[in-house]
C-alpha cells in the first residue's frame, strides 16, 4: 500500500491548478524516491514533469512502486474541497482501483475522506536527456507571468533571446510589435527578486505564447522561475517546490523548415 501525508496540502492544490488545463489524464508514479508524474499535452508539444520527493512529506510509505492513472480535472475537483491550511493524505492499496484523499483541518476538528476512481492510462514515457544549457535565466515568477500575459495581447509567438545585455522577449502581431528586455539584477533585498542570467552562448528561440501562459499558472508555487534554453532543444520552465522538488514544463520550439 501507499500512504503519503503532506502537511502543506496547499502545494498539491497549486500543482493541480498549474497542470490540469494542460494535461487531461496522467499516471502518477509512486516509489520510495517520491511522487512523480510525466505527461504530454494533447498536442504533444509540451511536457510536464513533477517531482515531490519523499523527504518532503511528513509521512511517506510506499511498499512497492505503483502507477496511479488519474483524470486531473477530477483530481482537481476533489482537491478543491481541501482547505488551504489542510493536511492532505493520499492513500491507495496495491492493485486497487481507487485512491483516497483525506483532508484534515489544522485544528483536527474536521476530517474528510474523498475516494476517486483510478483509470488505466497507456502513456508513453519520454527519456529526457541531461543537457548543459547554453543560457539559463532565473527571474521573479510574477514578472515572467506578467510578460507572457502582456505579450499575448499583441502576438501569438514569443522570441526569447539571451545575450550578455540581458534577456529579450519579443512578439509581433496585427496591431504592432513589442520588445521587453530584462537585465541582470542581483542588487535586490531578496534573492527571489533577482534576475540572474547565466549565459555560456547567446541563444534565440521562438515559442507559442499560448503554452507559456499556461505554464505561468504555476506561479503560486514559487517566487522565482528558471528558463533553460539551448538551440534546437525544448525550453525548460522550472518552478521549484520548496524542500520537495519541482514542476517543470518542457516546450518544443518553433523551427524554420
Amino acid at each position: 500500500m501507499l500512504e503519503f501525508r503532506l502537511v502543506q496540502g496547499s502545494l498539491l492544490k497549486k500543482v493541480m491548478e498549474a497542470i490540469k488545463d494542460l494535461v487531461t489524464d496522467a499516471n502518477f508514479e509512486c516509489s520510495s524516491t517520491g511522487f512523480s508524474l510525466q505527461a504530454m499535452d494533447s498536442s504533444h508539444v509540451a511536457l510536464v514533469a513533477l517531482l515531490l520527493r519523499s523527504e518532503g512529506f511528513e509521512h511517506y510509505r510506499c511498499d512497492r512502486n505503483l502507477s496511479m492513472g488519474m483524470n486531473l480535472n477530477n483530481m482537481s475537483k476533489m482537491l478543491k474541497c481541501a482547505g488551504n491550511d489542510d493536511i492532505i493524505t493520499i492513500k491507495a492499496d496495491d492493485g486497487g482501483d481507487i485512491v483516497t484523499f483525506m483532508f484534515e483541518s489544522p485544528s483536527q476538528d474536521k476530517i474528510s475522506d474523498f475516494e476517486m476512481k483510478l483509470m488505466d492510462i497507456s502513456s508513453e514515457q519520454l527519456g529526457i536527456p541531461e543537457s548543459e544549457y547554453q543560457s539559463i535565466v532565473r527571474m521573479p515568477a510574477a514578472e515572467f507571468q506578467r510578460i507572457c500575459k502582456d505579450l499575448s495581447s499583441i502576438g501569438d509567438t514569443v522570441i526569447i533571446s539571451v545575450t550578455k545585455e540581458g534577456v529579450k522577449f519579443s512578439t509581433r502581431g496585427d496591431i504592432g510589435s513589442a520588445n521587453i528586455v530584462c537585465r541582470q539584477n542581483t542588487s535586490v533585498d531578496k534573492p527571489e527578486e533577482a534576475t540572474v542570467i547565466e549565459m555560456k552562448e547567446p541563444v534565440s528561440l521562438t515559442f507559442a505564447l499560448r503554452y507559456m501562459n499556461s505554464f505561468t499558472k504555476a506561479t503560486p508555487l514559487s517566487n522565482s522561475v528558471s528558463l533553460s534554453m539551448s538551440s534546437d532543444l525544448p525550453l525548460v520552465v522550472e518552478y521549484k517546490i520548496a524542500d520537495m522538488g519541482y514542476l517543470r514544463f518542457y516546450l518544443a520550439p518553433k523551427i524554420e523548415d
Binding site: M40, S43, H44, V45, A46, L47, E124, Q125, L126, G127, I128, P129, T157, T206, A208, D232, L233, P234, Y250, L251, A252, P253, K254, I255, E256, D257
Partner: peptide, 14 residues
C-alpha cells in the same frame, strides 16, 4: 514562419 515541432521530435520514448 517557423513551424511548431512536437516534443517527441526532441525526446524519444524510453
Amino acid at each position: 514562419a517557423p513551424q511548431q515541432r512536437p516534443i517527441t521530435f526532441f525526446f524519444s520514448p524510453g
